[in-house]
Design a protein around this nucleic acid. Structure first.
Lengths: 119, 119
DNA sequence: CCTTTTCGTTTCGGTACCGTACCATCGAAA
DNA sequence: TTTCGATGGTACGGTACCGAAACGAAAAGG
């Protein structure tokens, strides 16, 4: 895989266009912690528990609980009891969450493509 | 300028790493609207008034007013009365805001560079 | 059994954001 | 001058987030 050349100035323009698009589209505005949690769940190997996520992001457990409340209500992910240890829960992906992140990836990718050229 | 090739999968990994870094660094978490406002002010030609920003982002004026309150308190930008029309204010850049966005651009750029290569 | 530890959730007080509606000021035009 | 529209700010009620602390349930260990 070739390194991606993205000078700081272009990076900010890219960020700007993506932020602008998200605002104009009125897409659900997850805060930065929720985004980090969601992407960790989808991009890193399972299982994901509240405790693991809290430790990985260096946030308190209630932050994870509340983020899971919000995002599971949006159907972006799903809680499941852990069969082996009933104190734990396991966070799982959903179809809706997969679609949401696919769209996000496409948006970033497409914006980056338009960004580099002189358009 | 060459087009930037950033496949959706890599885009999500990039997003993940940047979000993770922002959370771990406890950087001030501006919401998506505030980011869009800030970058518009810094990347598009002045002058920037509340009304212009509200129209450009298709949000209500109080959204802009509150975002300016928050970000001017963080010294990321500055309100100034418009000399020509005293009903208007003009939003201006600050040194701190410039530094903040320079750091953000560097973070994105650096993360993207590490993203594409196998590092 | 009983105590301690672990896990996720809930509660508490506080802060920040939202949209709707209203307000004070300024500028333009009669 | 008065009237009217434009501009930015404020007030209100509601929602969501935060950290700290307390909680109930389940596991671990005596």
């Amino acid at each position: 895989m070739a390194p991606i050349e993205l000078p700081p100035g272009d990076a900010l323009k890219l960020w700007h266009q993506i932020a602008l698009r998200q605002v104009l589209d009125e897409s659900p505005d997850l805060n930065i912690r929720q985004i980090a949690i969601l992407l960790t769940i989808y991009l890193e190997p399972p299982p994901h528990t509240v405790r693991d996520l809290a430790r990985k992001l260096k946030v308190t457990k209630p932050v994870i609980t509340r983020a899971l409340d919000t995002m599971s209500h949006m159907k972006l992910l799903e809680r499941r009891p852990d069969e082996r240890d009933r104190r734990s829960i396991v966070v799982r992906r959903t179809v809706e969450g997969t679609l949401y992140l696919e769209k996000l990836g496409d948006l970033i990718s497409h914006t980056a493509r338009g960004q580099g050229s002189n358009g």
